[in-house]
Simulated scan of single mutants.
Amino acid sequence: MKPLLPVLEAQQRLLALVEPVAVEHVPLHEAAARWAAEDIPALRTQPYADLSAMDGYAIRFADMPGPWHVIGESAAGRAFAGSVAPGQAVRIFTGAPVPGGADTVLVQEEATRDGTALTLTGDGPPHRGRNIRRKGLDFTQGDTLIEAGERLTPARLALAGISGHAALPVRRKIRVALAATGDELVPPGTPLAEAQLPETNRMMLAAQLAGLPVEIVDLGILPDHQPTLEAGFRAVQADLLVTTGGASVGDHDLVRPALEAAGATIDFWRIALRPGKPMMAGMLGNTAVLGLPGNPVSAFVTAQLFVRPLIARLSGAADPFPATRTVPLGEPLPANGERTDYLRAELRDGHAFASTIQDSSMLRTLARASCLIVREPGAPPAKTGDSVEILDIA
């Protein structure tokens, strides 16, 4: 039997099977949580002019310490049309353009005004240019603001908008077909006969993908009947087909033979991973295929490690893999075996605890978990307080 494929190699091989999908331009509000398909340049300069950073008076620093004669007012969206000559000042508000001739803003708390007469009453600005946001301080027209492959976060969307964009280039949404397999499965809420089980993997997977740019195609529950499976797989029109169940080697594990009979090529099967070893991956025409285990915990973990990164890759992400971080252990862990282990864990007071929620057959323990502790193959025992790598999960 071939050795189990390491997790990182499996991830890299999976992502190498596909290329990002076609580009479309969408309004800013529709681009949220997608990835930029091209570099996004600034279409304008921000600030567009020298602007006041404070409420006060625009003056010439050479005229310090005054007094001054106030000749007008500059407000955001309503600039002073003239210029400031020696001995003059212009009342100015935060965000307003600094009038020509002025080079400093005297804050209003350090001055007293009597009609048009302005007198310094505080220390005043310490140097020329004080309290002014210079033209182009944030960015200049033509600057690259967002690089291709970067996630379009709320802040980046705001940046794109203020730089002049009403729409952005992104990859079209990914069509993901979800199918559960197994004669024992029935929809949740159905009265159960003996040996029947409510099927929740499709709903769980759809929820795991809710923050990604996807369109879900629900194929429902497919029986353990190879001709039916084969016909269902042949009819799929999607970028990605995700199945759960039937991925192992039992007599009723028919997903792989049905996929191959439908024309799929299996690139790899069986990973050095706990939980989730029997996962398979391949291509069915132009459709990527991921066969996840039917065990809900295994399906959840493999979706985090493979389904989500594959969708990110198809969507043009520069870095599609999930990010991990380091936290201290709240309790000891034993040495790890030959597979990369993703331990369900709870975070309490910044420490990770895993000892009571490891039964991979129990959804209640998965529901308690807020992260996965990543244990590399052959990792030695870990003590309380040792640093461990975790992957946050929703």
Rank of each mutant, 00 (worst) to 15 (best):
M1E: 15
P6S: 05
A10T: 01
A10I: 02
Q11G: 03
R13Q: 15
L15C: 08
V26W: 00
P27L: 01
H29A: 12
H29C: 10
E30M: 01
A31S: 03
W35D: 00
E38F: 02
A49Y: 11
D50M: 01
G56F: 03
R60I: 05
A62E: 15
D63F: 12
M64E: 12
P67M: 14
V70H: 10
V70N: 08
I71R: 07
G72Y: 08
V84G: 03
A85P: 02
A85T: 13
G87T: 10
Q88D: 08
T94I: 09
A102Q: 04
V105H: 00
A111I: 03
T116Y: 15
A117D: 14
A117P: 05
L118G: 07
G122A: 08
D123T: 15
G124F: 09
R130G: 05
F139R: 04
D143N: 13
D143K: 07
T144D: 10
R151C: 03
T153R: 03
P154A: 06
R156E: 02
P169G: 11
A177I: 01
L178C: 04
L185S: 01
V186Q: 12
P188M: 09
E194A: 13
E194S: 12
Q196R: 13
L197Q: 11
T200M: 06
V214F: 04
E215H: 07
L219Y: 00
D224H: 13
Q226F: 05
P227F: 10
G232C: 05
V236H: 05
L241M: 07
L241E: 01
G246S: 11
L254S: 00
I266M: 10
D267I: 05
L273S: 04
P275C: 09
P275E: 00
K277V: 13
P278E: 07
A281R: 07
V289D: 04
G291V: 04
F300P: 01
F306P: 00
R308T: 04
P309V: 04
S315A: 15
D319M: 05
P322G: 08
R325D: 12
T326W: 11
G330H: 08
P332C: 08
D341W: 06
Y342I: 05
G350V: 09
A352E: 01
Q358L: 07
Q358S: 04
Q358H: 05
M362D: 11
A367Y: 06
A369D: 02
S370M: 13
S370Y: 07
R375K: 08
P380K: 04
K383F: 11
T384M: 11
T384V: 11
T384D: 10
D392M: 15
A394Q: 15
A394R: 15
